[in-house]
């Protein structure tokens, strides 16, 4: 469970920052970027509390 939560949480963080990098490279549009960031945010806040049983981790 903790491993899955960690993977999901890291994927959520990646979904927050990677789309912004892609937007900088003009590879995605602004609305797509914003949608992906919102999805990443939801994923992070669902998964992070279960990360290793320690909210927020170290």
């Amino acid at each position: 469970m903790a491993v899955l939560a960690r993977i999901a949480a890291l994927a959520g963080l990646a979904l927050v920052v990677v789309p912004a990098g892609l937007y900088l490279g003009a590879d995605v549009g602004k609305s797509s970027m914003q949608s992906m960031m919102l999805a990443g945010t939801v994923l992070w806040f669902i998964a992070a509390p279960f990360w290793n049983g320690r909210p927020g981790g170290d």
Binding site: V17, A20, Y23, L24, A26, F45, A48, G56
Partner: peptide
């Protein structure tokens, strides 16, 4: 305090995104 602990890494990423989007 727990929400703050959880939110901190996410906030850092959003701040990075602010910079990248601002540059574009």
């Amino acid at each position: 305090a727990r929400v703050a602990n959880i939110a901190a890494p996410w906030m850092v990423m959003v701040f990075v995104a602010f910079g990248l989007v601002g540059l574009r």
